[in-house]
Nucleic acid binder design. Structure first.
Lengths: 246, 246
DNA sequence: CGTGATTTTGAGCAGGATCAAAAAGTGTGG
DNA sequence: CCACACTTTTTGATCCTGCTCAAAATCACG
């Protein structure tokens, strides 16, 4: 069973909706399981109330006991550094998974908060572990999920270490675009679920710089930005900007 | 069996040295295994020749089939970004593990090269997977290992996103110091196995900036730097510099 | 419609990059 | 062992991107 969806997905809102029929099941936990196995998975995924904007899914230091698949909406994950400043580590959209940071020490290191009303599936990790012992392909999937998070974080490291403000913003927009496309939504028109402050924090830039880059890209007719609504007008140009050689 | 050690460890140089008697076994794959299990692990770890400075352990795009535990020496892991520039993603010292990036897509995304002569244990991943199905505590250890890499990468993200040149250098030195301490080596006197260029690349700074920061820290009597030999003279001050509020 | 939050825009500043050159270290072959 | 070439590091001068500070504009919502 699955948390009742509240927005944006095409899934049935029937609380009985199962993992087997959820159109996100190939995304959220990419399980290439046999039908029996899907039933098993279905039994362990928890239902729950939708999370409203600003509400926390979990906080840093909370005891770890579950992974969470975003079903609809959007969430922001962030850590606190030594100086107590927030560092946004990622934005997660439907079909994506959060909570992997908690496995290392049995407590989450990130804090995850809803950027808009979101429905979320809770997957108790203990049961993922138990099932993984019985289903080799699931064990492998979990290993891969974790490894993929590592390679994604390393891409972000490279972005922060090597790129200009414009490249960073362009790269984020392209990432959002392709994640929308994967969900069969428009890759050129979408709404940013996060604030400029969050974008700046994530990309290691100030809010003023984010705003200026948006203005510049709009002037150059690469984007049209209306508040949080983004239209990508020139995808090719945006790709160029994301990987410019200085 | 283990690659023959060539430097710096206190381990026997006997090629028969087993995981059970290797003083690094609690570090390299933190296995809380029973004796039987150690024997099993011992059987799967491969021997091999030491890697000399500049030699590759593996390259990006190589097919993935093993993890590697650093036994002695030091290696550098890096990725290539879209523009073909190198991004150093980490330095790995004895007792640390590389190769986790390869699990996601069955090919490594990083390239790993020896910074000095290094002996390295090769751990075929297929056998880690098979064993993990039988030994729940090993499965858990692998999950934790992967998750820990994620949280470490996220710490680096925060460092690159929020910190000044001085903070970044100080943080790297403190990291190296505590990793030396863990190995019962001096936390205040050690040799940097990597070049200034590598340090700069890792920290998202130019080589000139690295050099200037070292000069400044030396002037302030926080460090003494003689080529690659580092002496931390004022640990307290270094900690301050690593977490300064601007 | 008004109040507080968020975003945009402007002006000036500064940290680190770039460019350039000197200094020190490393290695090789005679 | 040294001379020469090459690489790496250090130091200096100047530049530029993005930050800071300030204020105006726009938005969200009771």
């Amino acid at each position: 069973m699955i948390r009742i969806s509240t927005s944006e997905t095409n899934c049935s809102h029937d609380p009985q909706t199962s993992c087997g029929t959820c159109r996100l099941n190939t995304l959220c936990l990419p399980l290439s399981l046999h039908l029996d196995d899907v039933d098993q998975l279905n039994r362990i995924v928890q239902r729950g109330r939708p999370l409203h904007k600003g509400e926390h899914l979990y906080r840093a230091e909370d005891p770890f006991d579950a992974l969470f698949a975003i079903r609809s909406g959007a969430v922001k994950a962030s850590t606190l550094n030594e100086q107590g400043e927030e560092q946004v580590t990622g934005f997660y959209l439907p079909g994506e998974l959060v909570g992997l940071d908690g496995i290392a020490d049995n407590r989450y290191t990130n804090t995850v908060v809803a950027l808009e009303t979101s429905s979320i599936c809770e997957i108790p990790f203990e049961q993922v572990e138990d099932l993984s012992l019985k289903i080799p392909s699931l064990q492998r999937n979990v290993f891969q999920l974790l490894s993929r998070e590592i390679t994604q974080d390393q891409q972000l490291i490279s972005l922060l270490s090597k790129s200009s403000a414009e490249e960073r913003v362009a790269t984020l927009l392209l990432s959002l675009s392709s994640r929308h496309q994967r969900r069969k939504l428009s890759p050129t028109a979408f709404r940013l679920p996060m604030s400029r402050t969050d974008i700046g924090n994530f990309l290691g830039l100030t809010i003023e710089t984010i705003s200026r880059v948006f203005s510049r890209l709009q002037q150059q007719k690469v984007l049209s930005v209306d508040k949080k609504e983004i239209h990508i007008l020139d995808m090719e140009q945006l790709r160029q900007l994301a990987s410019q050689r200085h």
